[in-house]
Each structure stands twice: as C-alpha cells, then as structure tokens.
Nucleic acid binder design. Structure first.
Length: 156
DNA sequence: GTTCTTACA
DNA sequence: TGTAAGTA
C-alpha cells in the first residue's frame, strides 16, 4: 500500500487524544454557549467523552468540535436548530462518502515514464489494464490506461 | 476559576 | 436560551 496506516493512525490520534476540550473552551472556540452545548448533548445532538467516577467535567474531542462548528454555521445562516442539525448530518454524510471513495480508489503513486502518477487501480474487469491519473500545468486531470502488469515503478 | 445540576424569567 | 444559586 502506498499510504501506510501510519498517517491515518496519526490523524486518528490527533483527533481523539490530543485535541480535547472542556466545555468552556469549546464554547469560546465555536461561539456556542455552554448552556447550548449541554442542551444539545441532552438531546443527543453531540456527545462528550465518557466521564469516569469523580470526573464531573465534560470533555469533548475534535469530532465534537467539528460538529458544533458546523451546526453553528447553519444557525448563523438562519436555520433552526433542528434544520441545522439535519444539514450538518447531510454534510458529514457527503464528506464521508467522498472520503471513503477516495480512500479506496487511490492505490498510491507510481512512476510512469519517470513521472509520478496516481494509481487508480484496475481499469477493466479483466484486470489487464491499469488506470492512472496525473495533472497538467493547467490543473487539468489527465488519465492514462496502461497494460498490466506494467513496468511502473512504485515510489512508495 | 470552572463546571455541574436545577430552577426560573 | 440566559442567568442565578449552591456545589464539587
């Protein structure tokens, strides 16, 4: 695999462990009051990390921040809370699909004619042709189909 | 000082 | 949703 799991794991750690905020911080960051944050949580719109034992203060992760920030944006645009939540869910679902497709479609980067191109996997059902993509000076995406196996050299 | 829950304007 | 009270 061209992209080892390392990058993904780092991002995951970044989001879940390093970026943790208390309710006051999240409120300041997003412009949403602590009252609202507690209310939204009571409604199941957002969630904080599990509070263990004596831990009475809520702790939010990066995911919660993203969700709150998105809802806040829609609220500012005039949506009701219900509408803002709906829009946010649609937005996040769209991004999830885009992310999943790209994550699975992009196999890596290889050298073709000594130039780096994106390996997009097999082009046909027979798996005799490989699809590659590159981009030219005008940001125009160019596709190339090559016989497989090719002499493309992985530059992982 | 901050956060929590509950209650009321 | 803001604010106040009384805690932890």
């Amino acid at each position: 695999m061209a992209f080892s799991g390392e990058h993904h794991l780092r991002m995951k750690a970044l989001a879940s462990e390093l970026f943790q905020f208390r309710i006051g911080e999240l409120a300041t960051m997003t412009g949403v009051s602590t009252r609202q944050l507690r209310y939204w949580e009571s409604k199941g719109i957002i969630s904080s990390l599990e509070r263990e034992g004596e831990q009475d203060a809520r702790v939010y992760n990066y995911t919660a921040y993203v969700t709150v920030a998105a809802i806040k944006e829609f609220l500012d645009d005039g949506y009701t809370l219900k509408g803002a939540v709906k829009k946010t869910k649609e937005y996040q679902e769209n991004w999830r699909v885009l992310h999943d497709v790209m994550h699975n479609a992009v196999k890596g980067v290889v050298l073709l004619d000594n130039k780096p191109v994106v390996d997009l996997g097999f082009f046909n059902e027979d798996e005799t042709q490989r699809l590659y993509a590159t981009i030219d000076k005008n940001n125009q995406v160019k596709y190339l189909v090559q016989a497989w196996p090719s002499d493309a050299k992985s530059i992982e």
